[in-house]
Design a protein around this nucleic acid. Structure first.
Length: 120
DNA sequence: CTGGTGACCATTA
DNA sequence: TTAATGGCCACCA
């Protein structure tokens, strides 16, 4: 399309990427930024999700940070809300953390799990 | 245009 | 292992 309109922002591109995350899987801010053509703009993803129009279908809860944790403070209601929504999709939390190698999207590669034993 | 800010990230101690 | 620091990029006032 010739439309140089680009809608007014990268938000749409980000939202569109988030819409691709399958149910039961999660992605990180940095990954979403890169897939949206905005490498390095991880913080913008948080900004975009924060500005989501009310009632949108964008599965914002499937985006967490690179540590595999929810980016809200535990004291915030949104923290529990997000964790509950993920739990309903069978995303398992281990000590407030999600196994990125298992639930991360897109999948990194064919290697299933090199060595699960991190300890030696 | 300039400066402040953020639902971040990787590195370093 | 967790905590602190600097760097990123784009949006907003």
């Amino acid at each position: 399309m010739k439309g140089p309109k680009v809608v007014s922002s990268s938000y749409v591109r980000i939202w569109r990427t988030v819409l691709k995350i399958p149910r039961g899987r999660i992605s990180t801010y940095g990954t979403v930024a890169e897939l949206s053509g905005l490498p390095g703009a991880a913080r913008l993803v948080g900004y975009a999700l924060h500005n989501l129009p009310n009632g949108s279908d964008v599965p914002w809860h499937r985006v967490i940070n690179s540590k595999g944790k929810i980016s809200f403070e535990k004291s915030q209601d949104m923290y529990l809300t997000q964790r509950r929504m993920l739990r309903e999709e069978d995303v398992v939390f281990e000590n407030e953390k999600v196994n990125l190698w298992r639930y991360g999207w897109p999948r990194v590669g064919g290697k299933e799990s090199k060595r699960a034993r991190s300890k030696r």
